[in-house]
């Protein structure tokens, strides 16, 4: 069963639609990726190499930028992805309009 789902064709990440276990294999773009840790429902996996500073696209829109190079198949989360807004938006700040 395919454990990854691409929500929008523009996305550069997959969402996990079925929990991943260590040792699970998945072919992504013709390249075989072997996962080394368990990853739960809803977590993100790079669908292709994402360079540091490049925007991560999910739902067809940017959801933040990579803070390091992310290889294809790697877990995309707080350690390598940062909001383009306010890193975890704190609501006690005046609203800042996007550029």
């Amino acid at each position: 069963m395919n454990k990854l789902i691409k929500i929008n064709p523009l996305d550069n990440v997959f969402a996990i639609c079925n929990g991943i276990l260590p040792g699970d294999e998945q072919e992504i773009d013709g390249v075989l990726v072997v996962f080394d840790k368990p990853l739960g429902l809803g977590h993100k996996i790079a669908a292709r190499p994402i360079l540091k500073g490049e925007q991560v696209i999910k739902f067809g829109v940017p959801i933040g930028s990579a803070i390091e190079d992310i290889p294809r198949g790697a877990h995309v989360h707080l350690h390598n992805l940062k909001s383009d807004y306010i890193s975890t938006y704190t609501l006690d700040h005046e609203f800042i309009s996007p550029k």
């Binding site: 969402a15 739960g40 977590h43 959801i63 933040g64 989360h77 909001s83 975890t88």
Partner: peptide, 15 residues
Amino acid sequence: GGLTTLEEKSMGAYC
């Protein structure tokens, strides 16, 4: 639950 940024959370609702 796998959500990393505010944009992502908002987008999940917005879609």
